[in-house]
Design a protein around this nucleic acid. Structure first.
Lengths: 148, 148
DNA sequence: TAACTGAGTTCGAAATTCGAACGCAAGGGA
DNA sequence: TCCCTTGCGTTCGAATTTCGAACTCAGTTA
């Protein structure tokens, strides 16, 4: 099976993994969550080639993760890329990556930005929990059952 | 900046994103969490080319996400790939992908496997929470502050 | 009218991935 | 001993993707 076929595999983990597992896509989403919205700004801050940027933005538009929204500047109508609700709902994925990065890939006390809860100022972390008993779960606490 | 430089960027989100954002890597991790451990089995179940599989496994070994563990079969010593603690700690990333996939990429009621909490049988989901007040957070609840 | 800007598109070169064949070491059977 | 099989890679030419620089185009400003 070529890589692209995972995008249509009947597995709720494979499909997102294939979508976000394309080169640049996760970094692009990071930039979007940090507030970047325009083609030129993605290009400048990430130094991605323009043709690949076009392609990745189009894939995310097609998947309805992003939407193009018109805006005005200097009396001209342009478009910017913004997250849809589906896109915003990817936040836990990015935060899970960051939580992991803080624990395992931060030799020094470096961070390029800080995150905190607006209401109480606390830190932010991703976790996995049980929908019934609300216990925090690790891989060992979870039973995998192949679908028939 | 070429893609590979994100791997050494001083950002706890960029570096994991660059590592897991290489083609096949997320799908490979999914397979590992599902129990696959041997080269031949990865190759067979994912149909990835052997040279790329070798490369991805080596990157994950180098990053200490995986370790090679000897085992015996037919009186011969072979090696299998297993998660380290660092690797197991990627579980929330995969679960966040799955939680998202269930909500947004599951048109039918399909799933290729079920997950449930061993102790109580409940479902599994990823979420983001505040380290102080334990509230569940969305992107809107979080303030981003650029470092200095 | 000419220059500028944002947002792409195009295209040849470089890098990555693919697929099939090859290599190799250990064990088993004749 | 010699040959076959297995698991785990390596190699290599072809196909695909990415890169980077130049080009396009529409609207705007000088």
């Amino acid at each position: 099976m070529p890589y692209s076929n995972f995008a249509s595999m009947p597995c709720t983990l494979s499909r997102p993994a294939a979508l976000l597992g394309e080169r640049w896509t996760l970094l692009l989403l990071r930039q979007i969550f940090l507030g970047t919205r325009r083609f030129e700004d993605f290009q400048a801050t990430m130094d991605i080639s323009r043709s690949v940027l076009t392609d990745r933005l189009n894939v995310l538009l097609q998947e309805n993760v992003l939407k193009r929204v018109p805006y005005h500047e200097d009396g001209r109508t342009r478009h910017e890329y913004r997250l849809t609700e589906k896109g915003r709902d990817l936040y836990p994925v990015l935060m899970a990556l960051r939580t992991w990065g803080e624990r395992w890939m931060a030799p020094e006390e470096e961070e390029s930005f800080h995150l905190h809860h607006r209401d109480c100022g606390g830190g932010v972390r991703a976790k996995v929990e049980c929908t019934e008993c609300a216990a925090e779960l690790t891989a060992r606490d979870v039973q995998v059952t192949a679908r028939q």
